[in-house]
Amino acid sequence: MKTISNYTFKTILFIGIGLLCLSAEAQEVEWLTWSDAAELVSTEKNPKKIFIDVYTDWCGWCKKMDKDTFQNAEVAAYMSKNFYMVKLDGEGKEPIEYKGKSYKFVPQGRNGYHEFAATLMQGRLSYPTTIFLDEEMNMLSPVPGYQKPKPFLDIAKYFGDNIYKEKDWKAYIGASGR
């Protein structure tokens, strides 16, 4: 019978504990489709705001934001509590209904874009872009570009905690020392 050395055992134990710590740090977010979030807003007695992550399959910064920001335990917990979270492919092919209008995919060049994504991003097709909508699906703000967890959480709390109703962004950031 072969036994493992004390060194090998400690190495395996150390790696196992490290992996457990990593898995405890990352948290999966429950992403919804647009139609699921829209239905929840219209049927819930006290609906949440909607958060939309507009991405593309080819976008490296989108993947980095998924891994670094959205799987951050503090970000994921806050977002899940305060928002219906939607993943929206900026080049998706399925039609989307929003406020009585149907939006569709527009072929252009090698790929194309989805009209709904372009509308939410106010014509600036930049990935990733995160969009915040209120409980009645009105636009609060698009936020273009990759965001690290802490700055993203500041933005999310600005909208999620309704601070935007009392302070403009500069006053909020300045007052909080961010």
Rank of each mutant, 00 (worst) to 15 (best):
Y84H: 07
K64L: 15
K49Y: 12
P47S: 06
V75W: 14
I12N: 02
I131M: 13
E39I: 08
Y55T: 00
E28H: 05
Y7I: 09
S35P: 10
E28W: 05
L125C: 03
I12R: 04
L125M: 01
V41D: 12
E94M: 04
I96R: 08
V75R: 10
F132A: 15
V86S: 09
K101L: 05
T8E: 14
G174E: 04
I15C: 10
M65S: 14
E91W: 04
M137S: 15
F83C: 06
G177K: 15
T119I: 03
L20E: 03
A38Y: 14
V29T: 07
T3H: 14
K49L: 11
E135C: 09
W31P: 06
T43V: 13
C59Q: 03
A24W: 05
R178A: 14
K93V: 00
Y98K: 12
K148A: 11
K48P: 02
F105V: 04
W169K: 01
L13S: 08
L20Q: 01
P47I: 05
V143N: 07
Y103D: 02
Y158H: 10
T3A: 10
F159E: 13
K148M: 11
M79G: 09
G16P: 04
E39P: 07
K170I: 02
K48Y: 05
K45P: 03
C59D: 01
A26Y: 13
E44I: 09
Y164P: 07
A156W: 13
V143A: 10
A24R: 04
Y172H: 06
G123R: 02
P107T: 07
H114Q: 06
N72Y: 08
V86M: 12
T8V: 15
N6V: 12
V54N: 05
K167H: 11
H114W: 02
G123H: 00
M137N: 14
W34P: 10
G177F: 12
P95N: 02
L40C: 10
L19V: 12
Q27N: 08
I155D: 13
D66N: 14
G177N: 15
P47T: 06
T43F: 08
F132Y: 10
G174L: 03
G112P: 03
F116Q: 06
Y55I: 03
A77V: 13
A117T: 02
P128E: 04
Q71I: 10
G112S: 01
L19G: 11
S102Y: 04
T43C: 09
E91S: 04
G112Q: 00
D161R: 04
Y78V: 11
V41M: 11
S176I: 08
A118W: 04
K101A: 07
L88C: 02
I17V: 00
S141N: 14
Y103M: 03
S141W: 13
Y98N: 09
C59G: 03
E44L: 13
Y146L: 10
T11V: 01
V29D: 06
D154C: 10
C21E: 05
V86A: 12
L22R: 13
Q27I: 07
I12E: 01
K167M: 11
F70V: 14
Y127E: 04
I17A: 03
E94P: 03
E91C: 00
